[in-house]
């Protein structure tokens, strides 16, 4: 049988999926053991026990100085910024993207501008944001919003334009006004695509957030990583990176489930 026709069964597929993870962990354990054998004080690849110890310290025990649980505190601070920025971006993108996609006049007005703005490297704006908005929460939320919104707007406008023209014409022949067509034909068909676009922007959003937290913050996952970097505290950095990754994966998964629950018709189409 040709390789292109060989399909693993469910168990094999699961094992295959786990294999790379297992290999990475194995490589880490071996590397860590080798380094520690040479130098027990090595900080670069701490042993699993040291990692577990550090996780217990930051996650389960209150901080000696402030009495807060560091991991919980950092996670809440980061998620607060991330979620408010993404909510803001999504709202702006939904309105602007639909207007650009549906109304030729707005497209003429805004499409070139948005295309230009989306090319501005957001991190280059970070100093400006810090200067103008101060070092507080506003500048971090603004950075993510500026970084993510133009992408969302362009993606959404394209999705609106991708809807078959026949649909708009059909809706017009059913007597729909522009507003009614936006509400009943375009919006429901765009919403699942918007969720997908937000999923794709989770990565960049985290990037911008961690960059902002690294420079100026009092709490946050990115802040903690860059803080403990000074002490070469790999035992804290590695779990934090894993935790950020896990958070992203969970958010992505939650968005998929949300899309499936809200839009059962989406994805099952042949066209």
């Amino acid at each position: 049988m040709r390789l292109i026709n060989r399909r693993p069964d469910r168990t094999t597929a699961l094992l295959l999926a786990l294999l790379p993870f297992a290999l990475v962990i194995l490589a880490y354990v071996l590397g860590s053991a080798a380094r520690l054998a040479e130098n027990p004080a090595d900080k670069l690849l701490p042993s699993l026990a040291t990692l577990a110890d550090a996780i217990g310290r930051v996650a389960l025990n209150p901080d000696a100085r402030t009495g807060d649980y560091l991991l919980l505190n950092d996670t809440l601070a980061t998620l607060d910024r991330l979620v408010s920025a993404l909510a803001l971006s999504t709202a702006i993108a939904l309105v602007t993207g639909m207007l650009i996609g549906m109304l030729p006049a707005v497209r003429a007005l805004l499409a070139p501008f948005v295309a230009m703005v989306s090319m501005v490297p957001p991190l280059a704006l970070l100093p400006i944001l810090f200067i103008v908005m101060g070092l507080g929460e506003a500048s971090k939320v603004a950075l993510i919003t500026i970084g993510v919104t133009p992408f969302l707007i362009r993606d959404l406008a394209m999705r609106v334009e991708e809807l078959p023209r026949e649909q708009t014409i059909k809706a017009e022949t059913l007597g729909g006004s522009s507003w009614q067509i936006a509400l009943r034909v375009v919006l429901p068909q765009i919403a699942p695509r918007l969720i997908d676009a937000v999923r794709l922007s989770l990565g960049p959003a985290f990037l911008f957030l961690i960059a902002a937290e690294a420079i100026a913050a009092e709490a946050g996952l990115g802040y903690r990583i860059f803080l403990v970097r000074r002490y070469l505290a790999m035992d804290v950095i590695l779990p934090y990176v894993a935790w950020i990754t896990l958070l992203s994966v969970l958010m992505d998964y939650a968005l998929v489930r949300l899309r499936r629950a809200l839009f059962p018709w989406y994805g099952g189409r042949s066209a």
């Binding site: 078959p164 026949e166 649909q167 014409i169 059909k170 809706a171 017009e172 022949t173 059913l174 007597g175 034909v185 429901p188 068909q189 839009f263 018709w265 989406y266 189409r269 066209a271």
Partner: peptide, 19 residues
């Protein structure tokens, strides 16, 4: 512009997939 006095059925994409 197209209006309610003239109905239409196309070969494809005539119905709304989300309804």
């Amino acid at each position: 512009e197209p209006g309610a006095d003239r109905g239409v059925v196309f070969q494809r994409y005539s119905v709304f997939p989300h309804l």
